[in-house]
Design a protein around this nucleic acid. Structure first.
Length: 1060
RNA sequence: GGGCGGUUAGCUCAGCGGUAGAGCACUACGUUGACAUCGUAGGGGUCACUGGUUCGAUCCCAGUACCGCCCA
């Protein structure tokens, strides 16, 4: 039964993938035949996610490397898995609960909610896996990992020890002083009420406003404000009793701690060190703040003076830190203005006292609520309006003419009616605003207590490893086993260095429920060092107990201990308790839900003791930190965690450190750098020796694909339409290192056609008996026919090119080399050349050609398989009974020694001759079907041999009837000049003399132009002296060949002239 | 404002010291016993600009212009 005309991808893909999986083709170590291992860790997609173009690209490249190594016999593991995507997953589940009319997360409670999340994970966690399978990804799915596996509450089937690994690392790092708790500014998402990472913040330029306000100097003081232009000429001089401030966020004025100017700014020199008044809030409690100097303010921007709100702006935070300015928090977790704490009057007084030099702890400052009573509880944007209105009403806004262009759309036409009226200066200008990428809310920088990794302490080895790796790479001496890491392309190593050299502490706590809960427990502070029992008997009476409770436990903060489980942490608390006076030294540690509960339980316990005097009933309540760890903290452990660490599994021993990480440039900071730091900190080894960083897949116009733009290409739809192979080949062919790829469907269609091409070449072979009784031996054919010798050499050439390209991660070079070979060499020439042999040859010729063609097609399938796995596997199965599937076929190792130089030269001559004849015919409008005679006036020995051996092919492909020698050419000939030969097509009657003349002249003029350049070089003695010898030789040969060809054309032109 | 990158055929992009390439698109011809998801032939480029290094520059260096991306 003849083959179909095209490959039915939709029908075959699933069948083939199932066959691979069923045969265990992808399991770790499958097809291994040598000791070397090759391991790639998949960048874990979100468990909530679905396949987008970036995944398709990323995983195609990984699959190519994996399949290539597996076929070469490496002990190969492609480790798949997903991460739990804390915020995204929690959001999806909450939305779903709301949609189904269920109670919300908080009503439901943590445990119940997490059950729902696990349920949901069970239902849809497999989506991305199935999508990766459709792409053809040859991961070892039996090892599929998940960053939450083994967490408390994980259902059956979600075991595994990733959770243990994460917790162990936290505890170890904590014990080594690498993790600490602190109050720092973080990105706060008011919708999800959690800290989020920089990665989850999108800075978007939006139309915004900049308000200009006057901060009056304390006590009505005045100074002379002088403004000069760049030449030093005074352009403004006036007495002022205020300093002018510009802000895009007026509501944060309430928390200002200072006004800063640049030390070099002469305009404000007279008032530096003085106090000014924040122009908002009740008049009687206006807060005064100092005017300070700092390098941060840009004298050229706005007024040059910057208000400093340390608790709500990242730059201000730095200024406040440097200058000891208190950082007053204004908002609650929903970004509403605070309602807690003492009345405003008290708080303002406290703040003023601090300004006057009063000591205050971080916690005490945080307790101060500087929101005026009437603004408390307002949403931040509502509060902004109110603040603006109040300041404006008080005439403390900076004013300008109503036609000031800075007002933007609100400005009147210049000179229009009312243009000279004064209005508040509110500049309309684009501002960069941070948005939560999930919540789409404006992110609020917020001063909160969080857990941090002290990255400064672990960054060194991560920097060193890549510095060494890049140095080796540059020196061309890269060694995969040397324990260093290179980043390709080099540019991305710069990004890595830049980020790590300026690294900030890493905030790893998230105020979420879905994630690894931080293994830290808190207890009320029992430090009794300041406490003296009245009798000095080291035992407490009731009065002392009460005092200790009231003054100590409750007033003071909490203490915490870190351990992997409650038992261990209990022991740690008990060690501390043991130092307390009796009866407290033997309190039983119990777990409660939080601090409030702890205070209650402790009070109850003491009250109970009061009555019972039974010390065994005394309990000491502790509560666990409710926060979870940043998802990146767990995915930072991906390389060791997926291999079973902290257990010493055989996989860990075998595959770690892994080999290559393939990932997008957008997560170099967030993931690559962190994996480097974490692996080095935890197991003191690099996680991989090579990081290949690829760019973004954009739409065909170069726009980033986004749902809101509607320009998203869905890889699954593309696979449906064109087949996975076409999508994969397209992505591969466009994967030039470090460049974005702009994807268009016409390109994919083009590569789908490529698949059809190889399909039909195979179909031709099959129809001509090439595979009849074909029993592949793996032996390289040693044919006698020139054309067969030639194609064997071409196969060897492309094999080297492909291996070289893949070894250098030049995926596009590999794809393009294969495309050019399969289509341009095999289909365009070899198949055509083979026709006379297969159809009219001797039995020996037929047999030899069949054997060669079978081998050639096998090689095409093998070499193409890593890029186009499906169609190649299908053809492999169609054409013969094989010992192994193609996915496990042996990758060839033959080299260019298979090239027969003579055959190569001869076939290139034949091809050139055919092309010349075809070109001449087409230009002379000879009907394509017409068979014509050909003459030659000269033909060297090589040419004669070549003609003799390939006559049938040339005649067939160039539609030539005969070849005869001619001493003189008849009138009306078309001339064809090739190396060592001058041919002519006698076309009297058909030929247009003028056209032939034009054709020859055009060719000749191009030749002459080339010759001029070549000869110019050769005549230059410095060229001959300084250029490499082979370049000079090459130039000479080329010049000679061109001279010869030009001579032939001139003869032809003379002949034409006689004719005319 | 700082950093990184780009500017090569109509489009999308390779190349990178020594004859300017590919795919797609375009034009003409073609049912040649694998393929019209095809074949054959063809048109199309002062390799952004200005200097420099070199025997030789699209390629290396410096500057200019424009366009991206990241970070402020």
């Amino acid at each position: 039964m003849p083959m179909e005309k095209t490959f039915d991808a939709a029908e075959a893909e699933q069948r083939l993938y199932e066959a691979w999986e069923k045969a265990g083709c992808f399991t770790a170590g499958a097809n291994a035949s040598r000791p070397e291992t090759f391991c790639i860790m998949i960048p874990p997609p979100n468990v909530t996610g679905s396949l987008h173009m970036g995944h398709a690209f990323n995983n195609t490249l990984q699959d190519i490397l994996v399949r290539w190594h597996r076929m070469r016999g490496f002990d190969t593991l492609w480790q798949p898995g997903q991460d739990h995507a804390g915020i995204a997953t929690q959001m999806v589940v909450e939305r779903q609960l709301a949609k189904e009319g269920n109670p919300g997360r908080r009503e439901m409670g943590r445990e119940k909610f997490l059950e729902k999340v696990w349920d949901w994970k069970g239902q849809s966690g497999g989506t991305i896996v199935n999508q990766l399978k459709r792409l053809g990804a040859s991961c070892d799915w039996s090892r599929n990992a998940f960053t939450m596996s083994g967490a408390p509450g994980a259902p059956e089937g979600e075991d595994g020890n990733f959770h243990d690994a994460v917790i162990k690392v936290f505890v170890d790092m904590y014990n080594n002083g690498l993790i600490y708790r602190g109050k720092r500014l973080v990105n706060w998402d008011p919708h999800f009420e959690t800290a989020i990472s920089d990665l989850e913040v999108e800075n978007i330029e939006v139309p915004g406003h900049m308000w200009h306000f006057k901060y009056p100097l304390a006590g009505g003081e005045t100074y002379t404000y002088v403004e000069k232009d760049e030449n030093g000429t005074v352009i403004l001089e006036e007495e002022r009793d205020y300093i002018s401030i510009a802000t895009t966020r007026p509501e944060t004025m309430l928390g200002d701690g200072a006004v800063a100017v640049h030390p070099s700014d002469e305009r404000y020199a007279p008032i530096v060190g003085k106090l000014c008044e924040i122009p908002v809030g009740p008049k009687e409690h206006r807060r005064l703040i100092p005017i300070i100097t700092d390098d941060y303010p840009d004298p050229a921007f706005g007024s040059g003076a910057v208000k400093i709100t340390g608790a709500h702006d990242f730059n201000d935070y730095g200024v406040a830190q440097r200058n000891g300015i208190p950082k007053y928090r204004l908002m609650d977790t929903r970004a509403h203005l605070r309602e807690d704490g003492a009345p405003y009057a008290d708080c303002a007084r406290q703040a003023q006292a601090i300004l006057g030099g009063a000591e205050a702890s971080e916690a005490e400052i945080d307790a101060i609520n500087l929101v005026p009573d009437h603004l408390r509880g307002l949403d931040r944007f509502e509060a902004r309006k109110r603040v603006i209105d109040e300041i404006t009403a008080e005439m403390l806004a900076v004013m300008t003419r109503a036609d000031d262009p800075r007002l933007g759309k609100a400005a009147l036409e210049p000179g229009a009616e009312g243009a000279d009226a004064l209005v508040p200066l509110v500049e309309a200008k684009p501002i960069m605003q941070p948005f939560g990428d999930r919540s789409k809310q404006v992110i609020e920088p917020m001063l909160t207590d969080q857990w941090f990794v002290d990255t400064q302490k672990i960054v060194g080895p991560a920097l060193d490893a890549v510095r060494k790796g890049m140095a080796a790479q540059e020196a061309g001496a890269f060694d995969e086993t040397a324990g260093y890491t290179r980043i390709l392309p080099e540019r991305d190593a710069k990004t890595y260095f830049h980020w790590l050299e300026n690294i900030e502490p890493w905030c790893i706590s998230r105020q979420l429920w879905w994630g690894h809960q931080i293994p830290v427990w808190y207890g009320l502070d029992l430090d009794a060092s300041h406490f003296a029992d009245d009798e000095g008997d080291n035992a407490l009476d009731d009065v002392e107990l009460y005092r200790l409770l009231n003054e100590g436990f409750v007033q003071r903060g909490a203490r915490h201990h870190c351990a992997a489980d409650f038992e261990t942490v209990t022991a740690q608390f008990q060690d501390v308790l043991a130092g307390l006076p009796a009866p407290l030294h033997a309190m039983r540690v119990v777990e409660v839900s939080g601090r409030t509960a702890a205070e209650e339980v402790l009070a109850e316990s003491l009250a109970d003791y009061n009555l019972s005097q039974d010390p065994t009933r005394l309990v000491y309540p502790i509560w666990r930190d409710p926060d979870v760890l940043d998802t990146w903290f767990s995915s930072g452990l991906w390389p060791i965690g997926t291999l079973g660490w902290p257990e010493t599994t055989p996989e860990l021993a075998k595959y770690f450190p892994t080999d290559v990480l393939i990932t997008g440039f957008d997560i170099i900071f967030f993931w690559v750098a962190r994996m480097m730091m974490m692996q080095l900190a935890v197991v003191d080894q690099i996680p991989f020796h090579t990081v290949y960083v690829h760019a973004l897949v954009r739409d065909e116009k170069g726009k980033k694909m986004s749902k809101s733009l509607g320009n998203v290409l869905d890889p699954l739809e593309l696979i449906d339409e064109y087949g996975a192979d076409a999508v994969r080949f397209t992505l591969t062919a466009m994967a030039a290192m470090g460049r974005d790829l702009k994807l268009s469907t016409s390109r994919i269609a083009g590569y789908r056609n490529f698949g059809t091409k190889i399909w039909n070449a195979t179909r031709f072979a099959e129809m001509n008996g090439v595979f009849q009784g074909y029993a592949p031996t793996g032996d390289i054919p040693a044919p006698g026919e020139t054309v067969n010798k030639w194609i064997v050499g071409e196969v060897a050439r492309v094999r080297e090119a492909v291996d070289e390209a893949l070894a250098a991660y030049r995926f596009n070079d590999a794809a393009n080399a294969l495309y050019a070979f399969v289509w341009g060499k095999v289909c365009d020439w070899y198949v055509e050349f083979s026709k006379p042999l297969l159809m009219d040859g001797t039995e020996a010729q037929k047999a030899e050609t069949r054997a060669t063609m079978a081998w050639v097609i096998d090689q095409c399938l093998i070499l193409l398989h890593p890029i186009m796995p499906y169609i190649t596997e299908e053809l492999w199965g169609t054409t013969a009974d094989r010992r192994k599937m193609l996915v496990h076929a042996d990758w060839p190792a033959y080299g260019v020694d298979l090239i027969d130089a003579g055959a190569d030269r001869e076939m290139n001559w034949v091809i050139a001759l055919i092309e010349e004849i075809r070109s001449a015919r087409a230009q002379m409008n000879v009907p394509a079907g017409a068979k014509i005679a050909m003459l030659y006036t000269e033909l060297d020995e090589a040419g004669k041999t070549a003609w003799a051996r390939n006559e049938a092919m040339i005649q067939r492909m160039a539609r030539i009837e005969s070849l005869t020698e001619a001493k003189t050419l008849p009138k009306g000939c078309v001339t064809i000049a090739v190396e060592g030969g001058a041919f002519a097509l006698p076309l009297e009657g058909i030929i247009d003399v003028a056209e032939e003349k034009a054709r020859l002249e055009k060719t000749l003029s191009k030749l002459e132009k080339d010759l001029k350049g070549l000869e110019g070089r050769l005549k230059n003695p410095k060229f001959v002296e300084s250029a490499p010898e082979d370049v000079v030789e090459e130039t000479k040969d080329l010049a000679a060949a061109k001279t010869e060809e030009a001579a032939k054309l001139r003869v032809a032109l003379e002949r034409l002239a006689e004719l005319a």
